[in-house]
Design a protein around this nucleic acid. Structure first.
Length: 525
RNA sequence: GGCCCCGUCGUCUAGCCAGGUCUAGGACACAGGCCUUUCACGCCUGCAACACGGGUUCGAAUCCCGUCGGGGUCACCA
């Protein structure tokens, strides 16, 4: 039975690299009809665990990564919180001690540090002398009489070689003599991560430990613990980490400033920020940026786009298949085809997947999912009246593939809902600020006022009649009209915009633009 | 610094284990063009990589050795 796990610590946010790891664990479990579980690594931070966990669970749910056991769903081995499993760790420590696989150590951290420094100076690898190791009650009494307190250390083997059969990297060898006598229990009785992790993986019957490669060098000590405790070893698979855009360094949320220097990353970030601003979201770089999954949900990306993109970051099916449904992903996923080298996160490629999946989505579905953005931005009443849905449907239809994320309805088509829209300054100067603009706009408006049927065909015909009568080229007027009625130089087809706005609004907006031109002209001159 | 991992277009990757079909394939990005009222989409074209050096071999991106480069990790963090 395949059982995999992902073990987030409750930090309050879901990191894109973490999700990739979790996704691989999840896919592997689903591929083999096994279970995927969530275990909470909260041995360190006791306070506000629930609050710090919510965004993480929410992110997984949004992405459709469901867990069979873990917080909020329970399971046969609950609790799945490390902070609630202290007794199990204590029992393991005692067993280690009893078996001679660990010892009480009375050294102070200064004494250990001194040994380490000596070793460094002598240019030999550090290995603890075990001078303050207490293996008998007499030793303990002696050290305690000196006022020392004990931690529990692993008594690591000092000879031989360990071979790890890693499912991604093949056989990896380690010399036991290079491994330190790591502390597994502090003087205050609390246990450390490696001990807890091994005990948990056994107690939860984890069959495959799939995790990021930074854990590869921790694996020998974990294997030592497991073997000392008579646990069967799980299979190990160490995934390459997700790297920064355009670099091989590990992606970290702390180096956001650096990523912002990457053009693509900055572009995606700014696009998201603009939508957040339209929504009135309070954003800080800490909680809202393209390294954090929540960013994509807020801005209105599709979870299937993110999932599809993330799977391809370190895994491929073949030489050309890129678009895969969740079902195809599950059917085809395999650890053998996971890459060994780190893969850098490319927001632009994610964007391309988003574009693709958005185009696949039916208009109705897009309307349903965009409407909440309009409501939150205050452009549509809550609850939205039926005509708002009808209007939005026509807009989405006309906008076609221009709306890349749900939030784009605000960044791109807000003017439909807002008569007091602002003119894009550059567009205004370019298309309304020119000498002939007002004159032409005013004449075109007169022509439009007498159009019989207000639809795309009639409007287009009216435009061509106008051009013929005035001996103008279309470029001389169409942009002017666009900016007058939408405020922007880019957007859906102009006739679509006019039709959707309707005759009254279109003409009113042209008047408003003419007023604005006059006003600005007076100020300027 | 020790140990471990990794190294194919700018980026994600296929190919490597079972050497020839690789004048290295696909995708994103980029550049140019077509379409076009703008933008976007779409289509076409282009640019662009086997880290380096030795070996083995008739033949090496693929096998071996070395070098260089990058990264991870060396906690009483997780």
């Amino acid at each position: 039975m395949v059982r995999t796990r992902f073990a987030p610590s409750p930090t309050g946010y879901l990191h894109i690299g973490g999700v990739r790891t979790a996704l691989f664990c999840w896919l592997f479990a689903r591929r083999h009809g096994g279970q995927f579980l969530l275990r909470i690594d909260d041995t360190d931070q006791q306070r506000n665990v629930e609050a710090a966990l919510q965004p993480i669970l929410h992110g997984f749910r949004w992405l459709g990564i469901d867990w069979d056991e873990g917080p909020e769903v329970g399971g046969p081995y609950q609790p799945y919180y490390q902070s609630q499993r202290l007794a199990a760790y204590q029992a393991a420590v005692e067993k280690l001690l009893a078996g001679g696989f660990a010892y009480r150590d009375y050294a102070t951290s200064e004494e250990i540090q001194a040994e380490r420094t000596d070793a460094e100076r002598a240019k030999r690898p550090f290995l603890y002398s075990r001078k303050w190791m207490a293996e008998t009650p007499a030793d303990r009494a002696r050290f305690e009489a000196q006022g020392r307190r004990a931690v529990v250390r692993l008594k690591m083997p000092r000879q031989g070689t360990l071979v790890i059969h890693d499912l991604v990297r093949g056989d990896v060898e380690f010399e036991w003599a290079r491994e330190q006598d790591h502390v597994v229990q502090r003087a205050d009785g609390s246990c450390l991560y490696h001990l807890a992790s091994v005990v948990d993986d056994f107690d939860f019957r984890i069959s495959h430990v799939i995790r990021a490669e930074e854990h590869l060098s921790n694996t020998p000590r974990q294997i030592f613990i497991a073997q000392s405790l008579d646990y069967p070893l799980p299979a190990y698979a160490h995934l390459p980490y997700v790297a920064e855009p355009g670099s091989k360094n590990k992606l970290s949320k702390r180096k956001l400033d650096k990523y912002l220097k990457n053009r693509d990353f900055a572009q995606v970030n700014e696009h998201g920020l603009a939508i957040a601003a339209a929504l009135g979201l309070e954003t800080t770089a800490d909680t809202f940026n393209p390294v954090i999954v929540d960013f994509y949900e807020q801005v209105g990306y599709l979870p299937e786009a993110l999932v599809n993109y993330l799977v391809l970051l370190g895994w491929s099916l073949d030489d050309k298949t890129e678009w895969m449904t969740r079902q195809q992903l599950i059917e085809n996923f395999s650890l053998e085809r996971v890459t060994k080298a780190p893969a850098s996160f490319d927001p632009k490629k994610l964007w391309a997947f988003q574009d693709h999946y958005m185009q696949q989505l039916a208009i109705d579905e897009r309307v349903t999912r965009m409407m909440p953005y309009l409501v939150r931005a205050g452009l549509v009443a809550d609850p939205p009246p039926g005509e708002a849905f009808e209007l939005l449907g026509r807009i989405v239809e006309a906008a076609g593939d221009r709306l890349k994320v749900f939030g784009d309805i605000l960044a791109y088509a807000d003017f439909f809902f807002n008569d007091a829209f602002a003119y894009d300054p550059k567009a205004f100067d370019e298309h309304l600020g020119k000498p002939d603009a007002a004159e032409r706009l005013s004449r075109f408006k007169e022509r439009l006022a007498v159009v019989e049927a207000w639809d795309v065909e009639s409007l287009e015909r009216a435009m061509h009649d106008f051009l013929a009568a005035e001996s103008l080229k279309i470029g001389a007027i169409i942009h002017t009209v666009r900016v007058a009625v939408t405020g922007k130089a880019v957007g859906p087809g102009l006739y679509d915009c006019l039709e959707i706005l309707g005759r009254d609004k279109s003409l009113t907006r042209m008047d408003r633009a003419l007023d604005e031109i006059r006003k600005r002209g007076n100020v300027d001159g």
